[in-house]
């Protein structure tokens, strides 16, 4: 199957300030490096004000930038509660990669709501998807001396799993192209840390 014949929908979700849009763009630019047809969509109405940020990348034959419920092949969540909130996008074949650091919404910090116990949350998610990959992206970023690049760690994990037909060179080329030059080195370290983690969960390509 040629690269143009693949059809993949990737849904991203996180909280304003987590760098989800840069991470999403990285996936889109890397696909472009590989000449894969790609569209990316961003919804960031009030992101700066602590709200949920959702974005998507569709590759190959898939042409609508909007991912319907039940139609995401991959979900990248930068926060555990947001991973669970994205369950309607998933189906039993979906692969869900989530960061494990909670970002408490103010509804929780002010005592109006409670943050669910992570264990139970992951159990629920795992029931409904083909594979749940949990990543302590903050720890991996810190180990790589790239504390502020947990978002790029997550993309490294996606790259490492080999789910997309994108080479290491294309990932890194995209990264170098879209980031300011002084940030490239740290982000390459973050990407590598994620990549090594992703290799452990390497699965059959989705294409």
């Amino acid at each position: 199957m040629g690269k143009a014949d693949i059809s993949l929908r990737i849904f991203f979700t996180g909280v304003g300030g987590q760098g989800t849009l840069l991470a999403t763009r990285l996936v889109g630019e890397a696909a472009l490096e590989e000449n894969i047809p790609v569209l990316m969509s961003e919804i960031h109405g009030m992101a700066q004000r602590g709200g949920v940020v959702e974005s998507s990348v569709v590759l190959g034959e898939a042409s609508s930038p909007t991912i319907s419920d039940g139609e995401a092949n991959i979900v990248i969540a930068f926060e555990p509660v947001e991973a669970a909130r994205a369950l309607p996008k998933c189906n039993p074949k979906t692969i869900l990669i989530t960061g494990t650091t909670p970002v408490l919404p103010f509804t929780v910090t002010t005592g109006q709501a409670t943050y669910p116990a992570p264990g139970a949350l992951y159990e629920t998610i795992a029931l409904h998807v083909a594979r749940l990959i949990r990543v302590d992206a903050d720890a991996l970023a810190a180990e790589a001396n790239a504390k502020r690049s947990a978002n790029v760690v997550m993309i490294g994990v996606l790259a490492g799993t080999g789910l997309l037909p994108v080479s290491q060179e294309s990932w890194k080329g995209a990264l170098a192209r879209i980031l300011p030059s002084k940030l490239v080195e740290a982000n390459l370290r973050a990407f590598d840390a994620g990549y090594r983690f992703g290799l452990q969960s390497k699965g059959k390509p989705l294409h």
Partner: peptide
């Protein structure tokens, strides 16, 4: 129709004044 999983009960995350 795709079989859609409902999200569990989760704390809301509305935008707020910074």
């Amino acid at each position: 129709e795709p079989a859609v999983t409902a999200a569990p009960q989760l704390p809301q995350r509305p935008p707020n004044l910074c």
